[in-house]
Amino acid sequence: MINSEDNSILVHIKHELGIRDNASISWGVQISEELPFRVDLVIEDDSKKYFIEISSRLTIDKIGRQLVLKNILRNTNSRNRSFEFIVASKLISPETEKIAHSCDIRIIALPYRSNVHENEKSDVRRIEKISSAKSWKIVIALLTENECSIRHIALKTNVSYAWTHATVKSLIAKGIVVEVNNYVKLQDIPKLLNGIAWERPFEKLYYNEVVLPENDALSAARTITRMCEWQDIKCGFTSFTAGGIYTKYGFRHDTAYVYISRDNLDPFLKSFDASDTHGIKIRVYKPDRDVFSDTRIAEGIRLVSPAQALLDLAGLGYSGRDLTLKLVENYARL
C-alpha cells in the first residue's frame, strides 16, 4: 500500500495502463457494506474499472486476494462494465508471475525505488497453517458453536483477538467459514478436512512399529497405558484407536496408534521383543506439539483429546474420512 499523497507510483500505474488524466481515482476502497474487503486502489476509466493491490513483493496471498475479489464481484449488477484485476509490486519472481497469469491476474512491475509501505490493513494477514496449535483451537470452537462472533471465539479459546480474527478471515477466504451480520459459522467441513490432510499429513509423524503378542487392540492399548504409567512415559493413543473409542464406530482391531514423548521414543521401543511378529501392531508416532497435557482415560486407555484425535484423523485424508466425519458428528457430546 502507498499513501495517496505519494503520486509517483500512481503515475507509473496510470502510464502502464494507458489511463487518461481525468480518470476517477479512489484509495482504500471497501467493496461493499456487507463484506469487510478493501482494495488498495480503484481506477475507473470510461467503461473499464481496475482493482489494484500494491505491495513490495508479489506473493500468492496477494494473488489470492484478487481471486477472492473476482469471486465477490462475479454476481454484481455491473455486467456492462469491464473489470481488470492487478497486483503492482517491486519484487516479482518468475514462478509467482506465472501463477498470476494463469489466474488471469495482471502484474505491473513497480520501479525498484518505489516507496511501498506494508501495513496492517490486510483482511487476511499472514498466519500459520490452520492445523497449527492456536489456529486449530479456533477451528474446534467453530465446530462446537452454531453461530458466534469472532470475539466470542477468542474468549472461549484464550487466543488473542488478532490471531483469532486472522484465522477466521483466512477460513472465510478459503470458503470454509461464512460470515453473516458479524457472526461466523463453519460452512464447508469437507473442504476443511481436505485442507488439514494437505497441510499436516498424519503419517509424516510416524516413527516406528512394534508388535505386542496379544489378540485384541483394546487389550494391547490398556497394557501399554499401564506400562507407560509405571515407567513414567508420556503416551496418548490417537488416530483410529482414539476415534474408534470416542465414536464407537470403525475401530481397528489389528493395530493401535500411539504418541510417545520424544525423549522416550527409543527406550519405549526397546521394551518390546523384536522377535515377536504375531499379535497387535503398535504404530508409534512422534508428536509435533503438546498432545499429552489434555489426555483422558477411557476404557482403561489413555487417549489424546477429541480435538487432537480429530486433527490426526483428518490428516489421514480419505483413508480415515468416514471415522473423521463420525467424530465431527459426535464432537459436541464428547
Rank of each mutant, 00 (worst) to 15 (best):
78 S>T: 09
79 R>W: 08
82 S>R: 12
84 E>S: 12
85 F>V: 06
85 F>R: 02
87 V>H: 01
90 K>F: 05
90 K>S: 03
91 L>W: 06
91 L>E: 14
91 L>Y: 09
91 L>A: 09
92 I>N: 04
92 I>M: 00
93 S>A: 07
94 P>R: 09
94 P>A: 08
95 E>T: 13
96 T>G: 01
99 I>Q: 05
100 A>P: 05
100 A>Y: 05
100 A>K: 04
102 S>Q: 14
103 C>Y: 13
104 D>T: 11
105 I>R: 03
106 R>L: 12
106 R>Y: 11
107 I>S: 06
107 I>L: 08
110 L>R: 02
110 L>F: 09
111 P>D: 14
112 Y>F: 08
113 R>K: 13
114 S>K: 03
114 S>E: 02
114 S>N: 04
115 N>Y: 10
116 V>H: 04
117 H>I: 15
117 H>R: 14
118 E>A: 12
118 E>M: 11
118 E>C: 01
119 N>G: 08
123 D>C: 01
123 D>Y: 12
124 V>L: 04
125 R>G: 08
125 R>T: 13
126 R>Q: 13
126 R>T: 13
126 R>K: 14
127 I>N: 11
128 E>C: 06
130 I>Q: 04
130 I>V: 14
130 I>W: 03
133 A>Y: 11
137 K>G: 04
138 I>N: 07
138 I>G: 01
138 I>T: 10
139 V>S: 10
141 A>T: 06
141 A>C: 12
142 L>T: 03
142 L>F: 09
142 L>E: 05
142 L>G: 12
144 T>N: 14
144 T>C: 15
144 T>H: 10
145 E>Q: 15
145 E>K: 14
147 E>P: 00
149 S>W: 04
150 I>K: 08
150 I>P: 01
151 R>P: 00
151 R>Q: 15
155 L>H: 02
155 L>G: 01
156 K>Y: 02
157 T>K: 07
159 V>R: 09
160 S>K: 07
161 Y>H: 08
161 Y>M: 06
161 Y>C: 05
